[in-house]
């Protein structure tokens, strides 16, 4: 109880839906093995029918099972994107912030170029022309997310570089690589982790947007964005087919965002106290 008072309600409120989504992602193929089974003869069934809590879609697939199975692509890709772009951000941002010079200028121009365009548009065009597919969109979004991470890490590193401990490390003759990754990185890590968490939410929204537009996951694969685009014409026949995946994306993204804000606030507070 004292732990709850210390941490507040935010992690609990956000944690419960997130744990549920991650559990569905991990256990989905075991919980709902037949989620993508089609039953053309059945067709669209309204929500609340016997055996189909949320009804079925045009292909006779059960919306409830499909939504559970869709958790996997909503977790795996976005987490990979967030980790990958932060790895790029830490490597390049640390180098840029510590070394400066032409590398710094080059990276900031690269970031300017990528940030000059709407992410949705660039991701749509590049992933679409390359040919789409789940891992292609993951890779594209990873690259598109990296400039903000590079900038964040760069500026965090630059505030560290001027501190006395770096100077003493240099005087001791430590290798640059050791200074960057053993001494600076731990001080930058909390902010980087909080941003990574927030990136998972943006990546989830971005990935399912691409799936909604017909890229991302292949046809027939369980995915919330894909479900939304398939169910667009079912607003009359079975509204639950739209509401379920829509609400799942919104709730998951909001939970990650709130948790990320909370972590970020604490990371910044602890960085200030040090």
């Amino acid at each position: 109880m004292s732990a709850l008072r210390r941490l507040g309600w935010t992690p609990v409120l956000c944690g419960v839906p997130l744990v549920a989504v991650v559990a569905c992602a991990a256990l989905g193929s075991w919980l709902v093995p037949d989620a993508t089974r089609q039953d053309m003869a059945l067709g669209v069934v309204k929500a609340g029918s016997a055996g189909h809590l949320l009804g079925t879609d045009k292909l006779g697939r059960d919306i409830f099972q499909l939504s559970i199975a869709g958790a996997r692509s909503a977790v795996v890709g976005p987490v990979c994107i967030a980790i990958g772009s932060m790895v790029l951000g830490v490597l390049l941002g640390t180098l840029a912030g510590y070394r400066g010079g032409w590398l710094d200028i080059g990276l900031s121009k690269y970031a300017d170029l990528l940030l000059a365009m709407p992410t949705t548009l660039v991701a749509l065009v590049v992933a679409g022309l390359v040919g789409g597919g789940y891992w292609v969109t993951v890779a594209v979004l990873m690259v598109l997310f990296s400039p903000t991470d590079i900038r964040l890490v760069r500026s965090a590193v630059m505030t560290q570089v001027t501190r006395p401990y770096i100077e003493s490390a240099k005087v001791l003759g430590l290798a640059d690589r050791r200074i960057m990754f053993r001494h600076i990185l731990p001080n930058v890590a909390p902010v980087a982790l909080a941003t990574m968490l927030l990136n998972v939410a943006f990546a989830l929204v971005g990935m399912s947007a691409l799936s909604f537009l017909g890229l991302g996951v292949g046809p027939g694969e369980p995915d919330w964005g894909r479900q939304l685009s398939d169910a667009r014409k079912l607003l009359v026949a079975n509204p639950a087919a739209v509401i379920a995946p829509g609400a799942l994306i919104i709730v998951t993204a909001a939970a990650i965002n709130l948790l990320g804000d909370w972590v970020q606030e604490r990371a910044e507070r602890s960085a200030r106290q040090r």
């Binding site: 947007a209 939304l228 509204p239 994306i249 909001a254």
Partner: peptide, 25 residues
């Protein structure tokens, strides 16, 4: 502010379809 956190993260297409259902349908 809490509403804004939800709004910033909420995807356009999901919000659009939900509004379409609620206010339109």
């Amino acid at each position: 502010s809490a509403g804004a956190v939800v709004g910033v993260g909420a995807p356009t297409y999901a919000v659009g379809l939900l509004l379409l259902y609620w206010l339109g349908q």
